[in-house]
Amino acid sequence: MSSGLNRLTDLEKPATEDARLKRIQTALKRYDARPDALIEILHIVEESYGYVPLWMMALLAKEMKVPPSRIYGVVTFYHFFSLKPKGEHTCVVCTGTACHVRGSQRVLNDIEDEFSVRAGETTPDGKLGLQTARCLGCCSLGPVTVIDNEIIPKSEPEKIVALIHEKAGI
């Protein structure tokens, strides 16, 4: 019953190095690999890779001298960091209170039904990642949806579904 556990091989760094890795190394240097900069560096990892790969955690643990368990604990504590690659396109439905009372649940339900994907998951083809946000702070414009970093105010379910079709090409 250890299906949810990670294997040692997951920790191995891929052979090829690229600009993304260089970016992380620059950041490590800039912060002097101080342990308190862990979250800042994880932000850069998430931005560069779209998620936090296990091998990257292993690398950070070594460079920053932070225990592996602590890094894993931090990554899984904050909802901004993901353990799996995100979809090619992302759709974030704000479920903050103001959006909630104005019907964000319907928007979310319609997207889930239309694209057979649950909030927090990515479609099997990797095209669309669906997420929810607790509040984007655009409460006057609710319900708010963000598709590929574009904020759609006063979202109507049908329009959002159509827009995702258009943008993600699915």
Binding site: T95, G96, T97, A98, C99, H100, R134, C135, G137, C139
Partner: peptide, 11 residues
């Protein structure tokens, strides 16, 4: 860290 959903004063 204005976390309350429905609040955007600090923002």
């Amino acid at each position: 860290d204005e976390g309350d959903p429905g609040a955007f004063m600090d923002r």
